[in-house]
């Protein structure tokens, strides 16, 4: 029994111009100890799917799914109160902007101990030692001196550490990190990613990493889901995917990276991600795809082997290593 099981999750928003399908038939199955990365460009619905799981979407959203269960409990039929008992305790989420995710009015100790008191009972004061232990665990030096610090006194990296401490306070089974390092500097980003992986291994959590950065995926995750315009176009193990991308979008995305450039001109993907009003017929990627054929323009593709494409790129032999060759 998987820890998290999502089948055919679809999220639609009501907007001024009619209904907008932000997430389209997304499925995800996750076990304890997994690190899964969801990667995609803006507008690919990568955050929305996870926010739907957390129940954090505004009222304009309509969520439908064949199955959405966590740890054997059905999240679809659950009422708001039961859901709250799970969210924040067993499932936690950290966000992109560490500076705005912490409440600027309260100090570090207050914010973390409140989470502890909420889920374990007892007064906030009784959790002081645990707060210190948590801060230690996320690598904050001299945690005793930081207890009374307010968010504006912390740097971006420190705030993100505090945020992580808060989110692992209840020892969640699943941690969702939504672009946790995008707002941080490179050297701090490396520290935070390392910390997340360390904690994931130490606590045996499952970790979902939402990011737009292929390089972060390559260095951190085991499995990767590539999303495009709300659809999962490819879902595979990281090493396989990087060595042998099979969906044309994944391939194009990788070869657009400056690292893979063989000449001064980069292999850009022409055009833009389709918006609400200009969704093409057939495969959503067909106007930008260099392999597109007539079938792609007429009929939406079926998923096979985790790839949503009429003409997936061929599997390479084990010896031809795309990545190594191009570096």
């Amino acid at each position: 029994m998987a820890l998290l099981e999502i089948t055919n999750l679809t999220v639609e928003f009501a907007t001024a111009h009619g209904s907008l399908r932000a997430v389209d038939q997304v499925s995800l199955s996750l076990d304890v100890g997994d690190i899964v990365a969801i990667v995609g460009e803006s507008g690919s619905g990568k955050s929305v799917a996870m926010l739907a799981l957390m129940g954090l979407l505004p009222w304009t959203a309509t969520i439908t799914a064949d199955q959405m269960s966590f740890d054997g409990k059905d999240l679809l039929t659950m009422n708001a109160k039961q859901r709250r008992a799970i969210i924040g305790k067993d499932i936690s989420m950290i966000f992109q902007e560490p500076m705005t995710s912490l409440n600027p009015c309260f100090n570090v100790e207050y914010q973390i101990s409140e989470v502890l008191a909420q889920h374990f009972g007892g007064s906030r004061r009784s959790h002081k030692n645990r707060v210190i232990k948590l801060l230690e665990k996320v690598g904050i030096p001299a945690p005793e001196t930081r207890l009374k610090a307010y968010p504006h006194q912390l740097s971006g990296g420190m705030s993100q550490r505090v945020m992580i401490a808060m989110m692992i306070a209840c020892e969640p089974k699943l941690l969702i990190a939504d672009e946790p390092t995008t707002a941080l500097d490179v050297t701090i980003q490396a520290q935070i990613l390392e910390l997340l992986v360390e904690l994931q291994q130490a606590n045996g959590m499952a970790l979902v990493l939402i990011t737009h950065d292929m390089a972060v995926v390559a260095e951190t995750a085991d499995r990767v889901v590539v999303q495009y315009a709300g659809q999962q176009v490819e879902q595979r193990a990281v090493i396989e995917l990087f060595n042998n991308p099979r969906h044309p979008y994944t391939e194009a995305l990788l070869s657009a990276l400056p690292e893979y450039a063989k000449e001064k001109t980069l292999n850009a993907i022409p055009g833009v991600v389709p918006g609400q009003l200009d969704r093409p017929a057939g495969c959503l990627f067909n106007p930008r795809c260099e392999h597109a054929q007539d079938l792609c323009r007429q009929k939406p593709p079926q998923r096979s082997e985790g790839i949503l494409c009429h003409y997936p790129l061929p599997l390479k032999g084990a010896t031809t290593d795309h990545v190594e060759a191009s570096l």
Partner: peptide, 12 residues
Amino acid sequence: ALLSATPQANTD
């Protein structure tokens, strides 16, 4: 350090 902290899109 900066170079080594920059994530790279290879799986090595």
